Simulated assay, not measured.
Amino acid sequence: MQKKTRAFLKWAGGKYSLVEDIAKRLDQAQELTGSTASTLVEPFVGAGSVFLNTNFEHYVLNDINADLINLYKELSHAPDEFINDARTLFSDINNDSDVYYGLRERFNKSNDAYERAILFLYMNRHGYNGLCRYNLKGIFNVPFGKYKKPYFPEKEMYFFAEKAQKATFTCLSYKDVFAALPKNSVVYCDPPYVPLSKTASFTSYAKGGFNLDDQANLANLAEQAACEQHTSVLISNHDTVWTRKIYEQADIDVLNVKRTISPKGNGRNKVSELMAMYLSGGKYKLNQANHG
């Protein structure tokens, strides 16, 4: 793999540390099924680490978070202008709780796509722990982060904007994305993870949430795409009794991953992540092939 590229956004559950494992599995899926995918489809693109660290001719990058997709579109459309304007908010005077809450209120009241995109980037880098969270009314409510000097990701933004010329950005439900999969594609799904405990879940980062019925429905759509549309689908999630049940038709691998969303160092323990692969045609098993 080429030198790894970081996303320009902080993002809970970002896949920067796992991109080698994910890319390897996407390559294996194509080798085993004798197919060559020209398009990578990501129904839950998040910060885009997999997009940034893979090489496909085209990408379909989707997320239900309208502010995230709006930011990507605005940056990709006019990167020089966007980066220059965004840079003005990354100053000592704006790294202040009163300023932050004022700009957060301005964001929540704004209907201007360009202004919302720039303020979304500002809040991502100045807000608490890089969280993205809304209340039930759709109001962004992440508190101030109290960082000494928030990083302005200019280099990472230019890299994203350049590579985004290969991408189509959409803000649809995962169901609609699966209903319109292009030919010669492979799919990587990074949905909101199943909670490890009843108290582990946090308020949704987009209105509507993603419940256990959605988790099971996503697994069904992945199996259907593999068997009926001959499109391989890789899904990542927590390794739990529930996820092993809903992914029982997939080939499963488990990875130990260090969590980085906890603000406390001693809360960043390793947890097991599951990789569920639904191979095109449903005929193969990655592990069987690897051990054969």
Rank of each mutant, 00 (worst) to 15 (best):
Y278D: 15
T231E: 04
Q249K: 09
T88S: 08
Y134P: 07
D251N: 10
G102S: 13
S91W: 01
A47D: 09
T88I: 06
D213R: 14
D21G: 05
G209K: 03
V177A: 01
L52W: 01
D63G: 05
A206H: 08
F160K: 09
A226Q: 03
S236M: 10
L181V: 04
A219H: 03
L75Q: 14
K270G: 06
H77R: 13
W11G: 02
K198C: 09
Y174L: 00
T5V: 15
L196K: 13
T39E: 09
G34E: 05
I246C: 02
K285D: 13
F210T: 07
D176L: 06
R106H: 05
V186S: 07
P191G: 02
A180N: 13
P150Y: 04
F178N: 00
F90V: 08
K198D: 12
M123E: 08
A226M: 07
L274E: 04
A180C: 08
N53V: 05
A37N: 09
T39Y: 11
N65Q: 10
V45N: 00
F8H: 14
Q30I: 11
T240K: 01
K4C: 11
R268M: 09
G265I: 11
Y205Q: 00
Y205A: 02
K264D: 11
N95G: 13
L119P: 00
I64W: 00
K73Q: 15
F178P: 00
G281K: 15
N65T: 07
N70A: 12
N124E: 12
D67V: 05
R125N: 04
I139Q: 09
F202W: 11
G130Q: 03
L196Y: 07
K4I: 15
K175T: 07
D67Y: 02
L279V: 11
S97K: 08
K163E: 03
L32S: 13
S173T: 11
Y247Q: 06
E57L: 14
F120H: 02
T168K: 15
L181E: 03
E42G: 08
C171D: 08
L274C: 04
L9Y: 02
G209P: 01
P43H: 04
L103S: 11
F210I: 06
K155H: 13
K73S: 14
P195R: 04
S35D: 01
L119T: 03
A180Q: 11
S232F: 03
G145W: 08
V186K: 03
Y205V: 00
K4G: 15
D85K: 09
Q30G: 15
L196M: 12
F90C: 12
H126E: 05
D21H: 06
L26G: 13
Y122E: 05
G267N: 10
D213A: 15
G14A: 09
D190I: 01
N70S: 13
I118V: 12
E105S: 06
Y247E: 01
Y174A: 02
Y193A: 14
Y122C: 03
D98G: 04
E42K: 04
F107V: 13
Y72R: 15
H77F: 11
S91Q: 05
V257E: 14
T260N: 01
V233H: 12
L121Y: 01
Y72I: 10
T243A: 06
Q30L: 12
E273Y: 00
K183P: 03
P153C: 01
T39C: 14
P143T: 10
I246N: 07
S91C: 11
D21A: 11
K148A: 06
Q224D: 11
Y278G: 15
A47H: 05
D80H: 12
Q229S: 10
L218G: 00
N184V: 06
E81L: 12
A289R: 15
